[in-house]
């Protein structure tokens, strides 16, 4: 049964219909036309190998259920994630508020998780500036404040999508290089205690 080996977990977070699923689909379909996953299984979980220098890093990309009724469960998803892509819709200011909420959650619960702030549907605001509800610089400031990378992407045109995931893989590679998997491994070992289940009761 052993599926593809995965180096690290990247979780997609954000309000419903900000474009998380589209982002993953865009990225994966763009690069791997006949990967073993998307054809058989859909885009809920994708293992995506990425060339980083000499090495190949395989990201396990975890999409989360969009519907609000499952939002309370999201905590269970991001446990142990080394990276989270927190999405907001450039044309929807409420989605940015939601993104702030996710960032706070991550900072509280997963201190080792690197955050990538991602404004989606860039194509829409480029076609019509008046649609933009989140100023680039406001988001940039917020990103700096929380020590996150900031991207504006379009799943429709593919703009900045590859760059975003490439950066995630590179950052992982760097951090893995620094602490030699040892630290990462200790982390996993220590957090394991009734991991999933305890968290279900807390939220």
């Amino acid at each position: 049964m052993s599926a593809m080996r995965v180096d690290t977990k990247v979780v997609m977070l954000g309000k419903e219909s900000v474009g998380k699923t589209s982002l993953v689909e865009r990225y994966v379909h763009h690069r791997f036309l006949v990967g073993p996953y998307q054809n058989t299984i859909g885009a809920a979980f994708v293992a995506k190998p990425i060339q980083v220098g000499e090495k190949v890093i395989t990201l396990g990309i975890w999409d989360t259920a969009g519907s609000e009724r499952y939002e309370a469960m999201s905590r269970i998803y991001y446990r142990g994630a080394r990276a989270a892509i927190v999405c907001y819709d450039l044309t929807d200011s409420s989605s940015f508020q939601r993104a702030r909420f996710w960032v706070k959650e991550l900072q509280n619960c997963e201190e080792h998780c690197k955050i990538y702030l991602c404004g989606t549907k860039n194509d829409l605001v480029q076609a019509d500036r008046s649609l933009r509800q989140i100023d680039f610089h406001d988001a940039q400031d917020f990103a700096e404040e929380i020590g996150a990378q900031h991207y504006e992407t379009s799943s429709k045109t593919g703009n900045n999508v590859d760059e975003l995931f490439q950066k995630v893989a590179e950052d992982y590679n760097d951090s893995a290089f620094q602490c030699m998997a040892d630290e990462a491994a200790v982390d996993l070992g220590q957090k394991k205690d009734s991991y999933f289940y305890t968290c279900c009761h807390n939220n």
């Binding site: 049964m1 599926a3 593809m4 080996r5 995965v6 180096d7 690290t8 977990k9 809920a44 979980f45 293992a47 396990g60 975890w62 259920a65 499952y70 309370a72 469960m73 269970i76 998803y77 446990r79 142990g80 491994a185 996993l188 070992g189 394991k192 991991y195 999933f196 289940y197 279900c200 009761h201 939220n203």
Partner: peptide, 24 residues
């Protein structure tokens, strides 16, 4: 833990945990 935390199996397992939490 590596299997549980990152891989495909881990994803489905996490979803099962979510399902149980949701049901509760």
């Amino acid at each position: 833990p590596s299997r549980l935390m990152t891989g495909e199996d881990g994803y489905y397992f996490t979803n099962l945990c979510c399902a149980v939490a949701f049901i509760e």
